[in-house]
């Protein structure tokens, strides 16, 4: 029974590692400039965690195999060095391992969150609501008009509550249901929640950030590959949470300008 148990642990450990090694289910390829660091951090962690996982499970299996068949006359042996070795090993091996991960990870995190967006980053506002994203481009004046919550009305498609007749800054604002961005240009995404908590997650872009009602946040990123990607919500926001999405189109600079003109005409 013990030997069977040991073999089972061994098989499960190896079996679990196979899909990881073969990349059967992998994260979608990165299309951002900051994602490389995150991906490196991920694969470093995967190597360390994978080794720890395999070593400890195999050791557990081996010990179960080895020490379950002793006879009554056998004497108890003590692990060489006893608990002291173990404490030292834990501090040195695991301590340095996790601290190294932590320290290296700071860079990947700081790269996303602790650097300001560059001055010429393109500002785009995204508003999350149950259960859709809407986007606002500031138009030629580069300024977003003020928001009037009492004017928000989905029936007239005034999703942001902007007053285009009275507010000068709002006149040229462009509201869209799809997010289009020019490739290789930094985007400064201003995030606003209309009702409850949501999240902005584009796996390919290596961006995930919650929308916090009452607290407008921002993230910045640069996409490097033209294509159409899904923006999904990862913060439980109600019955349509799984249907809350929008598309992100990364376009060439020319196509982006054309798209924006077309959207402006539709306002």
């Amino acid at each position: 029974m013990a030997k069977l148990f040991a073999v089972t642990i061994l098989l499960i450990a190896i079996g679990s590692a196979i899909p990881i090694l073969r990349h059967t289910w992998d994260a979608p390829p990165d299309i951002s400039t900051h994602g490389t660091l995150i991906d490196e951090q991920m694969s470093d962690t995967m190597v360390e965690a994978g080794i720890s996982f395999l070593v400890s499970q195999i050791l557990l299996a081996f010990f179960i195999w080895k020490f379950s068949s002793s006879r009554p006359s056998d004497k108890i042996k003590t692990f060489p060095g006893g608990a002291k070795t173990i404490v030292w090993a834990a501090f040195l091996l695991v301590g340095t391992e996790v601290l190294a991960l932590g320290v290296f990870g700071v860079k990947a995190w700081a790269n996303v969150y602790l650097t300001p967006p560059s001055a010429n980053a393109l500002p785009i506002q995204v508003q999350a609501e149950q259960f859709a994203f809407y986007f606002r481009y500031p138009g030629p004046d580069g300024t977003f008009g003020p928001v009037h919550p009492e004017m928000i009305n989905g029936a007239t498609e005034n999703f942001f509550g902007i007053d285009q007749t009275n507010d000068a800054d709002s006149k040229d604002d462009i509201v869209t249901a799809e997010m289009a961005i020019p490739v290789n240009r930094e985007i400064h995404l201003l995030m606003h929640a209309k009702d409850v908590g949501h999240s902005f997650f584009v796996p390919e872009l290596r961006v995930q950030q919650d929308f916090v009602p009452g607290l407008d946040l921002s993230v910045h990123f640069t996409a490097t590959r033209i294509g159409r990607y899904e923006i999904v919500c990862t913060q439980l926001c109600g019955l349509g949470h799984y249907n809350m999405k929008a598309y992100l189109s990364v376009l060439s600079a020319q196509n982006y300008d054309d798209w924006l003109k077309k959207q402006a005409a539709l306002q």
Binding site: F131, Y134, G154, A155, G238, L239, G240
Partner: peptide, 11 residues
């Protein structure tokens, strides 16, 4: 008024 929150244009 009745609306679909999944499709915010549906009013």
């Amino acid at each position: 008024p009745v609306q679909c929150n999944i499709h915010p244009w549906m009013h």
